[in-house]
Design a protein around this nucleic acid. Structure first.
Lengths: 272, 272
DNA sequence: GCATTATAGTAGTTTATTGCTACTTTGTCA
DNA sequence: TGACAAAGTAGCAATAAACTACTATAATGC
C-alpha cells in the first residue's frame, strides 16, 4: 500500500493531513439557485416559480428560490434541501444546470451560484410559504425575447435577448435592460440563468425523456404533445410525434378524459 | 427610479450596501479543474493532459491541471489564467463542464471545483512546465472502461465504469477502484470529471462544430474524419461524413499531404 | 334519434438522413 | 509500368422528419 509513502517533508499522508492547515485567504460564498418548472393544469403554459425579494439588494424584484450550500452537503443536497424548505417538494427531478461566478453578480459580496433545474408534474401542489411572496409565472421565449407573466397579479417581466455574449457556448452576460410594463425586474443575473435553463430544457427535450417529469402518472397523448410543444416552443406534427414516443408509453386501458365535449383520448403512462 | 426605495429598516439600497457585513460563517474553497484535450499528430488517439502530484494527498497520483478561483475573477477567467500559467496557452476553446461539490472530495478541506473542457489543435505545442511532471495521456473509453495510457512512460490508468450512480443524468460517484497495471491512479474524483468531460465532448460532437477546435487551420477530410471517430469512439461512413460536413468546410486549393505513398488528399479549412 | 362539431387517432407522400456496399481515381513505390 | 493503398464518388435500402388528409368517436343541440 501507499500509506507509507512520504513527501519531501518526510510525512505520510495521514501525518500530512493531521498537520494540514487551510490557508487564511478569502473564500467566496456558494449558493444554489433553483429553476422550478411545471406546466399549468390547462396546459396553456410552462410555469416557473419566483420569489419576490423583500430586502435590498434588488428589493421588490423577482428572484429564483435558493440558498447557501452548507459545509457538510453537496450542491445537489443543498438544492434538494432548499426545495423542500421553500416548497415542501421532495424526491423530484433535479439536474445541475451551470455555475455562475461573475464577480459583482451580487453587490453584497462574492457569491458563486450553482443553478439547478427542477421539474414537477402539473398536478403537484406547491405549498406556498406564507412568509415569502412566491408566484408561478407563465414563461415563454422566442428568438429575441424572454417573457414572464403572472395574469392574476398583472405582472410582466420581459427581457430582450439581443446583444448576447457567450462564454464558449453558454451565455454569461446580457446587458439588456428589461422592458417594463408593471415595473418588475429579475434580481441579480437571474435573467441569464432562466434563459440558460430554458435552453437546456429545450435541448434535452429533443434527445432525452426529460419532459415526462412534467407529466403526472397518467396522461393522454394530446396532453403530452402539448407539453412538448410548450417546452420546445414550436408546433409538432401529430403523426410524427406519436411515432416517436410510441415506444416510451403504454396505454393503461383506463378511461381517458374528455374536455369540451369531444372525442375521449386514451390514458397512457411512461414506460421506463 | 427605485434608488429611493427603503427596506423595513428604512434603508435605501445604497445605505443598505454600505452597512452590510457578510456573515462570519465558513465558506468552501472554489477551484477550477481543466480537461485539456488534443489529438496526437499521427491521429491515432485523443489526448488529455495530466499532472503528477508531488505531495499529499494523492501523492504520485495523476491530476487535472487547475487552481483556485481568485476573489476578483470569474471561474472562466480563472480557468483561462491557470491554462496560461501551466501550459502557456491563450485564447483557446474553453467550456464549463460541471461543478463537483461532494464533501470529502478533497481530504484537506472543503473544495468545490468547477470543471472546464479546453481543446487545442494537434499542432499546438504545449510548454511543459519543468517544475511539474506533466504528461499527455492517450484517452479512450468504451461502454465499461475508461483507459488512460502513456506509452513513453509505460503508465496505464484504468477505471471500470460499472456501478455508476447518477445525479439526475450526471455521474456524481463511482466507487470502482482502478485496475492497476503500473500502480497509477487518478487523484480526487478526477476519474468522474474525465468521464463526464468525454461524454460531453462526445455528445457535442454530434450536434455542434466543437471538434473543429481540435483541428489546425488547414486539414484534410480523412484527418477530420479520424478526429471525429476518436472523439465519438466509433467508425463513421466516409460518404455520410462528407455529406454532413461539406457545408462546414471549404477547399483551400492548396496542395494536400500524402502519407505512406498514396493518393494525396485535399486541404480544407473550417467555414464559420 | 340524428346531424353537427371538435378533437382523437390513422394513413400516405415527399424529402432528408443514416447504415452500408461498391466502385473509380490517383500519387507513390517496388 | 503495374501493384498498392488510400482518396474520393455513387447508389440503395431503411428510417426519420415535414406536411396533408383522411376516418372515428364522444358530447351536444335540435
Amino acid at each position: 500500500m501507499d500509506s507509507e509513502l512520504r513527501n519531501k517533508d518526510g510525512l505520510t499522508e495521514k501525518e500530512f493531513l493531521l498537520q494540514y492547515r487551510p490557508g487564511d485567504y478569502e473564500r467566496p460564498s456558494v449558493t444554489v439557485d433553483i429553476l422550478l418548472f411545471t406546466v399549468d393544469p390547462e396546459l396553456n403554459s410552462l410555469k416557473l416559480l419566483l420569489i419576490k425579494r423583500g430586502n435590498h439588494p434588488y428589493m421588490n424584484c423577482w428572484a429564483l428560490p435558493g440558498g447557501f450550500v452548507d459545509m457538510d452537503e453537496s450542491a445537489f443536497t443543498a438544492a434538494n434541501r432548499e426545495l423542500k424548505e421553500e416548497t415542501g417538494l421532495e424526491g423530484i427531478y433535479l439536474e445541475q444546470l451551470y455555475t455562475y461566478s461573475q464577480p459583482g453578480r451580487d453587490p453584497r459580496m462574492r457569491v458563486i451560484s450553482i443553478a439547478y433545474i427542477a421539474l414537477i408534474p402539473m398536478t403537484e401542489a406547491v405549498a406556498g410559504d406564507d412568509a415569502t411572496d412566491t408566484e408561478w409565472f407563465d414563461i415563454s421565449m422566442d428568438s429575441d425575447r424572454l417573457l414572464l407573466t403572472s395574469k392574476e397579479k398583472d405582472i410582466t417581466i420581459e427581457y430582450l435577448l439581443k446583444n448576447k455574449t457567450f462564454e464558449s457556448g453558454m451565455i454569461t452576460y446580457d446587458n439588456q435592460v428589461p422592458q417594463l410594463k408593471s415595473k418588475s425586474k429579475l434580481a441579480f443575473d437571474h435573467n441569464l440563468i432562466i434563459y440558460d435553463g430554458l435552453m437546456r430544457l429545450r435541448n434535452k427535450a429533443d434527445y432525452t425523456d426529460i419532459v415526462f417529469n412534467l407529466m403526472g402518472e397518467q396522461f393522454t397523448l394530446p396532453d403530452l404533445q402539448r407539453v412538448y410543444e410548450m417546452v420546445l416552443g414550436r408546433k409538432l406534427y401529430k403523426k410524427n410525434f406519436r411515432d416517436k414516443i410510441k415506444d416510451k408509453v403504454v396505454n393503461t386501458g383506463e378511461e381517458g378524459k374528455s374536455i369540451k365535449g369531444n372525442k375521449m383520448s386514451a390514458l397512457y403512462s411512461y414506460k421506463k
